[in-house]
């Protein structure tokens, strides 16, 4: 089973498809998580932090896309996104624990 999966996953077409999904969907989730982290931590009025977070989402998304296509394998692309997204969620959550 694992062998079949590995073979299917190592095909170039599969790798490209996986990277594209990671870049678009995974990247979007990461960007939203980054925007939320900025909104949660930026001092000043709440709505101002939200706007700042939203303004930056596209920069984070673009960074995520570059990562997805620059890295050696599609699996690494996904792992990187998961790691950073998890970190960002933790950062946002930490704001709640402190306050």
């Amino acid at each position: 089973m694992a062998a079949v999966f590995r073979k299917m996953y190592s095909s170039p077409a599969m790798s490209v498809t996986s990277r594209v999904i990671a870049a678009l969907l995974g990247g979007y989730v990461l960007a939203t998580a980054a925007g939320i982290a900025v909104a949660a931590w930026l001092p000043g009025e709440k709505h101002n932090g939200v706007i700042a977070g939203m303004l930056l989402t596209f920069t984070f998304w673009a960074g995520a896309v570059i990562w997805c296509f620059a890295t050696r394998t599609a699996v690494r692309a996904w792992l990187g996104l998961l790691l950073v997204s998890g970190l960002l969620v933790a950062i946002s959550a930490a704001r709640g624990w402190i306050a």
Partner: peptide, 23 residues
């Protein structure tokens, strides 16, 4: 972005209209 990135607003406001009123 207010249409395409709604998650950021929702994370900080229980009611979106509160945010749009402020902005």
């Amino acid at each position: 972005m207010f249409t395409t990135m709604p998650g950021v607003v929702q994370s900080q406001y229980a009611d979106n209209s509160e945010f749009f009123a402020a902005v």
